[in-house]
């Protein structure tokens, strides 16, 4: 796959970082504003997909395998499960117990475990979508070769 023109590449350089930051904002404020782990994770994957589409094979030479993103994906699910299991250990013997202090509703650091769950799900969704896209792109490259 060929890259696009220099104008697209420069614009993508400027924009991709802002899209990444917006995804992080959506994930971290998931318990205060609309959004959350699912939406933010897909936006994070979208910033990488934008870079891959604009730069083509020149960018893809760096990441020839998709093993890195699958490691993050499995790590996200395992940490999510571990956080749920801590409720079984320390809380009231309930799976998914929210035993951290809740704090004041409306503050950034509040709601106990929910922001941590949001971060785990965000990492997991972003890595999943990126793995699927990388698998499609690498398959296409191997066919063309």
């Amino acid at each position: 796959m060929k890259g696009m023109t220099i104008i697209v590449k420069k614009t993508t350089q400027l924009i991709a970082g802002m899209i990444f930051l917006y995804g992080i904002y959506i994930i971290l404020h998931g318990h205060l504003t609309p959004g959350g782990g699912f939406a933010g994770g897909i936006i994070l994957a979208g910033s990488f997909i934008l870079l891959i589409l604009a730069y083509g094979s020149d960018f893809l030479i760096l990441v020839r395998k998709e093993s890195g993103s699958t490691i993050y994906e499995n790590l996200g699910v395992l940490v999510f499960l571990f956080l749920a299991l801590t409720g079984l250990l320390f809380g009231g013997r309930i799976f998914f117990a929210n035993w951290l202090p809740h704090g004041t509703p409306g503050e950034l650091i509040s709601a106990g475990f929910l922001p941590l769950y949001n971060i785990c799900v965000g990492i997991e969704v972003a890595a999943s979508i990126l793995s699927i896209f990388l698998a499609l792109i690498i398959f296409k490259e191997e066919i063309l070769k």
Partner: peptide, 17 residues
Amino acid sequence: VLTAIVIGLATTAMLMA
């Protein structure tokens, strides 16, 4: 519906594969 939308994306991608 929020969880179902994301599952729909994954299944569509698998169908495309």
